[in-house]
Design a protein around this nucleic acid. Sequence first.
DNA 1: TCTTGACTCTCAAGTGGCTTGAGGGTTTAT
DNA 2: ATAAACCCTCAAGCCACTTGAGAGTCAAGA
Lengths: 282, 282
Amino acid sequence: MIKIGEFSKLVQVSVPTLRYYDQVGLLKPVEVDRFTGYRYYSVSQLPRLHRILALKGLGFSLEQIGAVLAEGLTPEQMRGMLRLRHAQISQQLVEVQNQLVEVEVRLQQIEREEQLSTYDVILKQVEPQLVASVRAILPNHSASGSLFGEVYEAIEPHVAEALGSHPGEGGQTMVLWYDTEFKETEVDGAAAFVLRCRIPERGRMHVHELPAATMAATVHHGSYNTIGEAHEAILKWTEANGYRIVGPDREIYLYNATPIRLDDPSYITELQYPVEKAFNGK
Amino acid sequence: MIKIGEFSKLVQVSVPTLRYYDQVGLLKPVEVDRFTGYRYYSVSQLPRLHRILALKGLGFSLEQIGAVLAEGLTPEQMRGMLRLRHAQISQQLVEVQNQLVEVEVRLQQIEREEQLSTYDVILKQVEPQLVASVRAILPNHSASGSLFGEVYEAIEPHVAEALGSHPGEGGQTMVLWYDTEFKETEVDGAAAFVLRCRIPERGRMHVHELPAATMAATVHHGSYNTIGEAHEAILKWTEANGYRIVGPDREIYLYNATPIRLDDPSYITELQYPVEKAFNGK
DNA sequence: TCTTGACTCTCAAGTGGCTTGAGGGTTTAT
DNA sequence: ATAAACCCTCAAGCCACTTGAGAGTCAAGA
């Protein structure tokens, strides 16, 4: 019969923690003084506490540990819990590894450039989107603006139902670039409007669904003339962090619908490249 | 100027989270309606939010992110933060890897034995301890009891000051085993008492400090005759989890001071093996 | 026996980064 | 005009504790 302070030293667990374990019913003292409330423990409780600590070391919650100690479960169930935990840790391991790489990339970048980059690349899931688009080979990237008129004309009869009055729901504009290698001329691109519902195709205008994807995304704030820097930043990021581009990238025009004046500094454009984790480390 | 719900969809961040970021001052709406309290955001806030998400992805706290966004820091400081974070993640990576191995070991064990093992091995740090001990070559492990009399006799004149009346503070008894390979006979062991203060040596009794160490520990509850099982369990664990034994192991007698009757089932003994992580994976 | 200091108790609040829910007001589409 | 969808604030919950206030208890030394 030993007091909580000594027990605490013996088992290397803080006094408040022992009191907490008492409170949640994980480890009750063998005796509690009726008058003073003093808790008294016994060394015979060591195995139980050891088990608690061991399971905690495996990452189980106190609630789960309580269930294990309650003895109500079969080896079968125990195996299930361990397998689940195994999957969780494996997952976590991957995440931590990725995070480590990301931090390393940022560090190298800051050593080279002596400042925090203007572009922050993040991963995001995007949902499938129905779009109306016209795809063509263009003389250069800036020429994409000319396609929007054609798309809009084809949509016109259905504007109300297909675009709606809210941004986000429909009417958002973007350009898709299909070239898998960088080109300055003869570029393969499409101008697109996001739709709320399917409408009939017309001429070169096609309606199709952009697939859901994991996107490496960044935001370009400023003139369309300098958007190349944003593309570059995102490409560097994907390579350095071990991702692979698996489809056409998107330029989504958020502030002003289409780039009419190429040098308007108030444009805000989100860039998205669909990516997958590459299997070989680099 | 867009409402919180639309902004939420645009940036893939939940509405309550955006409100929370407003509350803690990370991202204030460009405008708040004075009468209704409605928050209005602008796409020009996207870059800032992107940066928040990027830094969060690197594992920084919102407070740290706030500091970064406040612009008050030099690239130098940023480097410092990243390096610190790098160290933390590396540390975490090691921990997660170890945890994964531990869970795998447990799983294999449960597949073999169809039940949760009786012994739970945990790692613990122990502090340096001053002990009085007599070391000798013994005919077998059970013979260790005979050394305790000799130690106690040598301590006797200083019992009050050196042992004290409290367990934990002094007076604890243990046996140390020095053989690096398993032996049944001619074993090299020592019986020891933990001391509160240094006392003069006498005869074969020496006073020295057991070093601090990381211990793989388990608890044996029952007759001393069956303690071999606990040793076995701990040895299996250290090997399976990639540790190396780096010194003599200790048997600490917790319930009854010394093993007088070898078959007393109420004995509680803590076993500790000092270990280090081995460098090669297995 | 008394004091002193180390120990113990309970109860409440704080940690981070949100989520969930109650209860009520506002806007928009039909 | 009405209903649905949206927005607001405020409070509590999550996890596994830690910290602190204020008060009572115990054991050793004077």
